[in-house]
Design a protein around this nucleic acid. Structure first.
Length: 352
DNA sequence: TAGGCCATCTGGTCCT
DNA sequence: AGGACCAGATGGCCTA
């Protein structure tokens, strides 16, 4: 046989994770993954090795010395030595090995890069609403939700007044898939059917969230509506329609609070020197709570945003405390010279 | 079984 | 030359 063993350590492992990617310095999961990949690499490399076989056939016909710099003219189809034009260098075995090693190193770098990207994405998952280890948001949904979250929080600051809960959640769910929308709604103990879409795909309000209404009824609301049964609140035919995700193009916002453009329309206008409110929403403080298990334990949805320890979900600072529809958000803004703790408040509202 | 999601490989491009 | 980044291709896994 002309081929080398494809699982030859010197061929497959040593160059691949040599100077640049020592296996022992890799993250644990990456090293494990690489180990798995190495074990899988036999069949994965088969195509390469078939190609390698052909190349090595040529190489063997050329001999062992490096032929990269050979100057002899190769005869053309008529047997006449070509003296002009670009000469096609046959890859020598040494050159081919170097190419292969570089390719393997590039693959390892690319894997590492993608793992870093995924790690960053995972950290992003932890600071947007509805983090769950068991039901992870997809990459695209994580990015969309993060964008909506930033936008909604920015709106909260720029508006300078209490936002409407449903409008906030609707903003969060803009453009998200239905499962993700349901997830967000579930995190906040909302029923997704409460923000319905009309036949144009625009989100419409049909009812207040029954769980909150039943616990903290608004004046005149149907306090007897059973929690979790949204259709009983609205009672309309629309309320029975399956929830569809937000339509980006024609978003129907709560006119009172989200009167600006959609998240797709760019950052909301801010009067301050910085466009987005920086370091506002407790995201950074969340870094101290990387262990989401403690949150998920107490959550009926297995998520950390429902009933975090040490915080009364529906207590004094709850967004659902009494009052009218304007009093449904958990915090007051103290914009001028007053102590202002929006981080903790927003954290409590959406990271409980 | 189709579709969604994901990890990985791979070749190209750009930059240092 | 080599690394970072990107996008296309591919195959595996999972779910409706």
């Amino acid at each position: 046989m002309l081929t080398l063993p494809i699982d030859e350590p010197a061929m497959m492992c040593e160059p691949r994770f040599g100077a640049n990617y020592p296996r022992e310095t890799l993250p644990e999961d990456l090293a494990r993954d690489i180990g798995r990949r190495d074990s899988m690499h036999e069949d994965m490399s088969n195509s390469d090795m078939r190609e390698d076989d052909l190349l090595e056939d040529e190489d063997l016909s050329l001999g062992e010395e490096d032929e990269d710099e050979r100057e002899e003219d190769e005869p053309d189809a008529n047997g006449i030595a070509k003296t002009r034009g670009p000469r096609r260098k046959k890859p020598s075995k040494g050159r081919h090995e170097r190419v292969k090693v570089r390719r393997q190193e590039a693959n390892a770098r690319e894997r590492s890069r993608m793992h870093g990207l995924n790690a960053a994405l995972e950290s992003l998952r932890k600071v947007v609403p509805c983090y769950s280890k068991t039901q992870k948001l997809s990459k695209i949904e994580t990015l969309r939700l993060a964008k909506n979250y930033i936008w909604a929080l920015s709106e909260t600051l720029s508006a300078g007044k209490r936002p409407d809960l449903l409008a906030f959640v609707q903003t969060l769910c803009k453009g998200l898939s239905q499962p993700t929308t349901n997830l967000v709604a579930g995190c906040l103990q909302l029923n997704a059917r409460n923000f319905l879409t009309d036949h144009n795909g625009d989100v419409m309000f049909s009812a207040r969230p029954p769980p909150y209404d039943s616990m903290y009824p608004y004046p005149g609301s149907e306090a007897s509506a059973p929690p979790g049964h949204s259709s009983s609140g609205g009672g309309t035919a629309d309320s029975a329609k399956p929830f569809r995700h937000y339509n980006y193009g024609g978003a129907a916002y709560d006119a009172g609070y989200y009167e600006n453009a959609s998240p797709e329309g760019g950052s909301p206008h801010l009067d301050g020197p910085l466009s987005p409110p920086m370091n506002f929403n407790g995201i950074f403080s969340l870094k101290h709570h990387d262990d989401a298990s403690e949150y998920s334990k107490s959550s009926p949805y297995g998520m950390r945003y429902c009933g975090a320890p040490g915080r009364a979900a529906l207590g004094q600072n709850s967004m659902y405390r009494g009052g009218g529809p304007e009093a449904r958000f958990p915090y007051d803004l103290h914009l001028r010279g007053q102590p202002y703790q929006p981080q903790a408040e927003m954290h409590g509202a959406f990271h409980n």
